[in-house]
């Protein structure tokens, strides 16, 4: 039964060239919303290290708030359910899709609609923020490469908006 179910991406395929950057769809990924009052209990349960500071991202896990983490993992990686533990581990893989913005002009392209000062965002940082009126999760993977995670229903609008305001 499950073999006949396919997840269709709301993003068009291919790459769009912007001024100094390219826009492409991120591969399918595993996404987990992680909550715990005691991050050490969560780290022990999933067997991974968690970033200490809010806004830090390491090993694919971003710390969004005091008790909230978000894991962006390769599609084949699964986390345990944490059943019975003082944590919440929820698979939200299908909730969002990723858009990769890459190139020397990537930060400028995103700042066209995002109010954060990306000149001050270091690589390895991740945060929830907005692009125009749409909530996004912004991960700065390197100086010139960002991944934007956005809920599916906003994704095609965000893609066209990024492509439109930054048309080369």
């Amino acid at each position: 039964m499950a073999d006949s179910l396919h997840r269709a991406s709301p993003l068009p395929g291919g790459t769009v060239t912007l001024e100094g950057a390219t826009l492409s769809a991120a591969p399918e990924m595993g996404r987990y919303s992680l909550r715990a009052r005691d991050p050490a209990a969560l780290a022990a349960l999933i067997g991974r290290e968690l970033p200490d500071a809010i806004g830090a991202c390491s090993g694919g896990i971003a710390r969004l708030g005091p008790d909230e983490f978000y894991a962006l993992l390769p599609a084949q990686d699964a986390l345990p359910s944490g059943e019975g533990g003082p944590v919440s581990i929820v698979d939200v893989s299908a909730r969002a899709v990723g858009i990769v913005v890459e190139g020397a002009g990537a930060a400028r392209a995103i700042m066209a609609g995002c109010p954060l000062d990306l000149d001050r965002m270091q690589p390895g940082r991740a945060t929830r923020t907005v692009f125009e009126g749409v909530e996004i999760l912004l991960v700065r993977e390197t100086e010139t490469r960002f991944q934007i995670d956005v809920w599916r229903s906003f994704a095609s609008w965000l893609w066209r908006s990024l492509a439109g305001v930054n048309a080369a």
Partner: peptide, 11 residues
């Protein structure tokens, strides 16, 4: 007054 960092840490 109360504020919420709703599109950030959520607090």
């Amino acid at each position: 007054e109360r504020w919420r960092h709703i599109h950030g840490c959520g607090r």
